[in-house]
Amino acid sequence: MNNFMSRFLLFLIVFDLAIPPVKFLGSSIFALALLMAEYIFNPQRFKYIAHSIDYFKIPFLILYIIVLYSIFRVGIIEFTQFQFIGSLFKTVIILLTIVMYTGRYEKEKIINNVFYIFILNSLICFLAGTFPELLKIVYIFKPDVTLTTWITYRNAFLSGSGFFGIATAYSFALIALAIQNKKRKISVSFLLQILILMIAGIIAARTTFIGILVAWSIFTYYNTKQSIIITSSVAVFILIVVFSGIFEGIEAYTNWAFEMFINLFNSGSLSTSSTDHLGRMYFLPSSEWSFIVGDGLYTTNDGKYYMNTDAGYMRHLYFGGTPFLVLLFSFVFSFLLKSRNRNIVFLLLVVSLIFHIKGGFLLHNRVGFPLLLILCYYYGSRKNEIVKKSISHPTSI
């Protein structure tokens, strides 16, 4: 029962399902309520939460300042940005939930549960994407069932977040899997885990290639032979799937997933339609005021991106100017202050900064961002021997 609850709560926190009839709240608030009830009915558990509070207290303080600054900034223009302020309060709730969750469960159980819930959601994606009746059930827990795509499986994750958010989470899961097993001998079950997470992540969004690249680099740095085995196994699997004809219409999927590499081969340009679009999202503000304190706008009155840019840094710059970006970077790197494994935590934080180039990841992503906080705590609160040790394979569903 304890294992079930720890996994169930983590699933609610990380994937933030849109639970009817209050879909706008997200499932993380239900996880918070369940955790609070457990602490209230078992007061002795409060003594175990001190370490989590100590680790997160500085980031929480900076987040508090960010919220105050944001309220002040939008107040200047008649407080029209309710969506942005609401998103920040949701971040506060997520951080509180993570503090209570990490204080409740053992660290080894937490990292095992991370792999477990991602394998589970991958299987849900594969099944729901294949069987329409199951997909209808998944849609119940999504905030917008009108969201469609020609790749059915992209809609099949049991998550309240969109494609980009899910992909960032899978990227961190792959990186964590590489860190935990970088010196472990290759096994069939391990290769299967990698394949499942890679396939599901790429289905969500091609952003997952960032996580794959970082994970591959970790394997290569610690064990070149192991990296060659993993790379060869994945390549053979891809070739079998693409050329075997087992899956109908697989060419359209692979053309989309590997567009960057196809373009590189055909034209020598390592780009996709998404990267071309991203390049147009960065431009210099026309007003010095935007640099100094921002325009106080995150979205327009009709709900569209302000200045028609969805790039994370641009949206924050236009909202709160340079002070907001300074606070944002302070929040991110504050996790290093209490971290013992600073190299690993720094790597995770750098990846998060890269994700924010693409879209609003920091503070606003409801899947990848909570997982980042959990992994920072897991690695940051451990001694450096984690670099030298690996744990057993956690996922046996």
Rank of each mutant, 00 (worst) to 15 (best):
T146L: 07
T149G: 12
R154K: 12
N155E: 12
L158W: 06
S159C: 07
S159M: 07
G160F: 04
G160Y: 05
S161N: 09
S161T: 12
F164C: 00
G165K: 03
I166F: 01
A167P: 03
F172W: 01
L174P: 00
A176T: 05
A176R: 04
A178M: 02
Q180P: 00
Q180W: 00
N181P: 04
K182M: 02
K183H: 09
R184N: 14
R184Q: 14
K185C: 05
K185E: 14
Q193K: 09
I194M: 09
L197S: 04
A200M: 04
I202L: 15
R206E: 15
L213K: 03
V214I: 12
V214Y: 00
S217L: 12
I218T: 02
I218L: 10
T220G: 06
Y221R: 13
Y222C: 09
Y222A: 09
I229T: 10
I230T: 03
T231F: 15
V234D: 03
V234Q: 08
A235L: 15
V236A: 13
I238R: 02
L239V: 12
V242R: 13
G245I: 08
I246T: 12
E248A: 14
E248G: 09
E248N: 13
G249E: 10
A252L: 13
A252T: 14
Y253T: 12
Y253P: 07
T254H: 10
N255M: 12
A257M: 14
E259N: 07
E259Q: 15
M260G: 07
F261R: 06
I262S: 08
F265I: 11
F265A: 14
F265R: 13
N266L: 13
N266A: 11
S267M: 06
S267I: 09
G268S: 06
G268D: 06
S269C: 04
S271Y: 03
